[in-house]
C-alpha cells in the first residue's frame, strides 16, 4: 500500500515537473521583458546591465530553479493587465468556475444514474432507445453550440409561425412551440451572496440561480451522454454476472438486486472515469464561460491569451495542472482502496 502511494505521488511530482518546465519555457520564450520595462531611449549598455541584474543572462537551469522556487511559494509574478499578483487574480476567478463545475456535476449525477440504470434494466424499451439515440446526438453537439441554442431558446426566445395562425389549433401549437426568453444569458448577475474570502456564491439567491442554470446545463451536456452510456454498459455487464443471478434466485426483490447489489459494482468504474472527467470539465469551462461571459478562470485565461498576459497564462497553466494532477491522483488512490483486485505494489501488467 505504502509503495503504491509513494509511486503515485512520484508520478504526480513528475507530471508537475514536466508542466512547470513547459510553463517556464513559455515564459522564457515569449517576448523580451527588458523591452517591456524600459523606454526606447535606454542605451544597450544599460539594458545589458539590467539584464545582468535581473538574472536574465543566467543559464536556463538557474533561471528555471528560480522560477520553480517562486512558484512553489505561490509567486508567479505580476499580471501585466491587472497589475497585481497573478495568483491573486486566479484566486478571485476560481470560485465562479468551481461553482459552475459543481452545478454541472450535480446535474450529471442526478440525471445519468437513473437514466443509465433504467436503460440497462430495460434495454429494449422505447424510452431507453430514445435515451441512447439522444446521447449519441448529445455527444455530437459541441458544447458551445448547445450553449448558443439554449441562449436562443431561453433568453432570446423563439417565435414559431409554422402552423396557420388563423385556425385555433395552429395558433395553439405556435404558442406551445414558441418561448418567451426571459433567462439571463451572460454574467453572474448582481445578486451574489458573499460567503468567505473571494467566494461570492450564485446558489443562495433566485437571481443567482437563474444566471447559473443555462451555463451549468451547457457544461453538463457534454459529459451527460458519456456517463449515461458508461453507466448503462457497466450495469448491463454486472447484470450478467453470477452473483446477480444468485441474488435473483434467492428471491430478493428486483429493486433490491438492481439498486443495492448491482449498482454498487456499477459505480466503481464510473467513479474513476468520473473523477478524471471532472478535471476534464475545467477545459470545457473555457468554452462555456466564453459563450456566457461567465467571469471564471476559463474566460480569464482566454482574455489573458488575447492580451498576451504571460504571467497570468503561466499561472493558469500551473494551477490547472495542479487541479488535474490532484484529481487524477486522488481517483487512482481511491480506486486502489475501493477495488481490492488492483495490484497495489506490483508492476503494471
Amino acid at each position: 500500500m505504502i509503495a503504491f502511494l509513494i509511486k503515485r505521488l512520484m508520478h504526480a511530482v513528475l507530471v508537475m515537473f514536466v508542466i512547470s518546465v513547459l510553463a517556464f519555457a513559455i515564459q522564457d520564450n515569449l517576448g523580451d521583458p527588458i523591452q517591456q520595462m524600459v523606454g526606447q531611449s535606454v542605451p544597450e549598455s544599460e539594458r545589458e546591465a539590467l539584464r545582468e541584474r535581473l538574472g536574465l543572462n543566467d543559464s536556463f537551469l538557474v533561471q528555471y530553479g528560480r522560477f520553480a522556487k517562486n512558484a512553489v511559494q505561490g509567486d508567479f509574478g505580476y499580471s501585466y493587465f491587472y497589475r497585481e499578483p497573478a495568483l491573486g487574480v486566479i484566486a478571485r476567478h476560481l470560485p465562479a468556475t468551481l461553482e459552475l463545475v459543481f452545478a454541472a456535476t450535480l446535474i450529471i449525477v442526478l440525471l445519468s444514474v437513473p437514466i443509465g440504470v433504467y436503460s440497462a434494466i430495460k434495454p429494449r424499451a422505447v424510452l431507453s432507445r430514445f435515451f441512447m439515440g439522444a446521447s449519441i446526438i448529445g455527444i455530437s453537439i459541441p458544447v458551445f453550440l448547445t450553449a448558443i441554442v439554449l441562449i436562443q431558446i431561453f433568453s432570446i426566445g423563439i417565435t414559431v409561425t409554422l402552423f396557420p395562425e388563423s385556425t385555433g389549433w395552429g395558433a395553439w401549437l405556435n404558442g406551445l412551440l414558441s418561448t418567451q426568453g426571459s433567462m439571463p444569458s451572460f454574467g453572474r448577475g448582481y445578486d451574489l451572496v458573499h460567503v468567505v474570502g473571494h467566494w461570492d456564491t450564485n446558489m443562495a439567491s433566485w437571481d443567482g440561480l437563474k444566471h447559473l442554470v443555462l451555463p451549468a446545463i451547457s457544461l453538463a451536456s457534454i459529459m451527460l451522454p458519456l456517463f449515461i452510456r458508461l453507466i448503462r454498459a457497466e450495469m448491463m455487464e454486472v447484470l450478467q454476472s453470477e452473483y446477480v443471478k444468485y441474488a435473483r434466485a434467492k428471491g430478493i426483490s428486483m429493486r433490491r438486486v438492481y439498486f443495492v447489489h448491482a449498482l454498487k459494482n456499477t459505480m466503481l468504474p464510473v467513479i474513476t472515469v468520473g473523477g478524471v472527467q471532472i478535471g476534464t470539465m475545467v477545459a470545457y469551462t473555457i468554452l462555456t464561460e466564453t459563450v456566457f461571459q461567465w467571469p471564471g478562470m476559463g474566460l480569464m485565461f482566454l482574455d489573458a491569451i488575447n492580451r498576451a498576459d504571460i504571467p497570468l497564462i503561466v499561472a493558469y497553466l500551473m494551477i490547472v495542472g495542479v487541479i488535474f494532477v490532484v484529481t487524477n491522483t486522488i481517483v487512482d488512490l481511491v480506486y486502489g482502496f475501493v477495488n481490492p483486485t488492483v495490484k497495489l505494489t506490483g508492476k503494471p501488467a
Binding site: 507530471v15 513559455i26 520564450n29 515569449l30 478524471v276 478535471g279 476534464t280 475545467v282 477545459a283 470545457y284 473555457i286 485565461f301 491569451i305 498576451a308 504571460i310 497564462i313 497553466l317 490547472v320 488535474f324 494532477v325 487524477n328
Partner: peptide, 19 residues
Amino acid sequence: LSFSTLMVAIVVGAVVKAT
C-alpha cells in the same frame, strides 16, 4: 492523456499563436 485533449489543444494553440 491525464489532461483533456481539448485542453492540450487550446493551450498549445494559445501559446503558438502568442509566440
